[in-house]
Design a protein around this nucleic acid. Structure first.
Length: 424
DNA sequence: TCTGGGGTCCTAGGACCC
DNA sequence: TCTGGGGTCCTAGGACCC
């Protein structure tokens, strides 16, 4: 059997790069893209990284730096990023027999048996740049974990990488030298909490982790980190998942644009969220057994705090918007307490199963269920064609004064005829 | 005034069953 | 005084990812 080789391809500074495709004025400027509600930094241009601004920094703490350096801050535009992502993934799928789309901006490719990987990586980069206008980096390794690490090296220009890094081409000695230079926290699966714990065991670099005793790692940290160590040793533990498995739960939650105190507004919010979650549920072809409704105040301020969630079982598993909305509404009524300034609410659909596995019960009205099915289908079709929220439950509210801030969002250039970019 | 949203996997512990 | 062992299911919590 030949050794597997995986590629990890990802877009550099994805959200910022998407914005720059459509607005040349953003080139060379320090640009950040903010999270929902314009909360904190989720994407940074190289100029921002050079200023030492970290991922996740709250935007309100950057106002001074922004004035000083002329930082451009954009609200996130997921319609645009989602569409750009789809284009990139479609192109990449042509480069390998199997692809796993891992996140909005990265995918694994099975490139086992392909020769001339360095040149192949440059072809990938050139094509994405030419066809979509986005810069990507490519990393190769014998396992997914090594491919991720190689991608990191390609971004940092380590081992002479020029946007492409092939760890499979290194001798054992060169590979040791390289991995001894990289902080253990860069490894996929080693997060903030583990770094200090590993440090106490004198495991500080990727090389240290690769040489660590597997049994010790397992007993101290569990099977997940054990797999990571094995993967660093080129033992293939994490298979490529070409077919995305169905989700076990579907969430929709948002923080509010301003504090919310009244039940009527919370009710609008959770009905809005459960509508969105229901759309995702029907796209997946699943039904839900229960609806979790959650509510909380702002943990970052000194207001009196309150946080609660409640699971509302459904009479039978369903994907019907009206049934889901009813459960969500009853849930929010039960956990609401007056006298608090609420900051965030959410809905989670749980106990999902494929719609065709749903057991019918003795007392349900099959005609009514069929009618509801047609209603939901009609709503999804209309909203799919004319845009989300074209038709919506009245209970979801019209003006939605609680909805999140997005003060500087660019147009949906690629998915809305009215927002097509024009030549000026 | 202002700190995201959406997910996964694993483990431990308790309830319950035979 | 003695007081099994093995299994499932559920929940909560902790870690991780982007």
């Amino acid at each position: 059997m030949t050794q597997s080789v995986f590629a990890l391809v990802d877009v550099n500074n994805f959200y910022v790069s998407c914005e720059r495709v459509f607005d040349w004025r953003l080139w060379g400027k320090p640009v950040v893209v903010l999270s929902n509600n314009d909360g904190c930094v989720v994407a940074r241009s190289p100029e921002i990284k050079a200023l030492g601004i970290k991922m996740g920094t709250p935007w309100h703490k950057l106002k001074d730096a922004a004035r000083e350096h002329g930082i451009v801050a954009l609200s996130s535009n997921y319609t645009l990023y989602g569409d750009m992502s789809r284009r990139v993934m479609t192109i990449l799928a042509d480069f390998a027999p199997r692809q796993e789309v891992y996140s909005i901006d990265e995918c694994f490719l099975d490139v086992s048996g392909i020769s001339g990987l360095a040149g192949y990586g440059q072809q990938i980069r050139a094509r994405i740049q030419q066809w979509v206008g986005l810069p990507v980096c490519v990393g190769y390794g014998q396992t997914k974990t090594l491919a991720k690490l190689a991608n990191h090296c390609s971004k940092k220009g380590l081992a002479g990488a020029d946007g492409v890094c092939d760890l499979t081409a290194l001798s054992q000695a060169d590979s040791d030298t390289l991995l001894d230079q990289i902080d253990v926290g860069e490894v996929w699966g080693v997060g903030r909490r583990l770094v200090p714990q590993l440090g106490m065991m004198n495991i500080c670099t990727v090389g240290d982790l690769r040489r660590a005793n597997v049994a010790t790692i397992r007993s101290k940290f569990g099977v997940v980190l054990e797999r990571t160590v094995r993967e660093l040793r080129a033992e293939d533990c994490l298979p490529l998942e070409a077919m995305a498995p169905d989700k076990d739960q579907i969430m929709a939650s948002r923080s509010f644009g301003r504090p919310v105190t009244e039940l009527c507004e919370l009710r609008e919010a959770v009905i809005t969220y459960v509508t969105r979650a229901g759309e995702k549920l029907r796209i997946q072809g699943s039904v839900a057994s229960s609806v979790l409704v959650s509510l909380r105040t702002n943990p970052f301020n000194d207001d009196p705090q309150y946080a609660r969630q409640i699971v509302m079982p459904l009479p039978h598993p369903t994907d019907d918007m009206l049934a889901l909305a009813d459960a969500a509404e009853r849930g929010i009524r039960q956990i609401y307490r007056s006298g608090f300034r609420y900051h965030k609410a959410g809905v989670m659909l749980m106990g999902l199963m494929p719609a065709e596995h749903r057991q019918t019960t003795l007392f349900e009205d099959s005609e009514e269920i069929a009618r509801r099915g047609r209603l939901n289908e009609a709503l999804d079709t209309i909203n799919g064609k004319f845009g989300r929220r074209t038709v919506e439950l009245f209970g979801a509210g019209i003006a939605k004064p609680w909805s999140m801030r997005a003060e500087n969002r660019t147009p949906a250039y690629t998915t809305d005829w009215n927002a097509l970019p024009t030549v000026r």
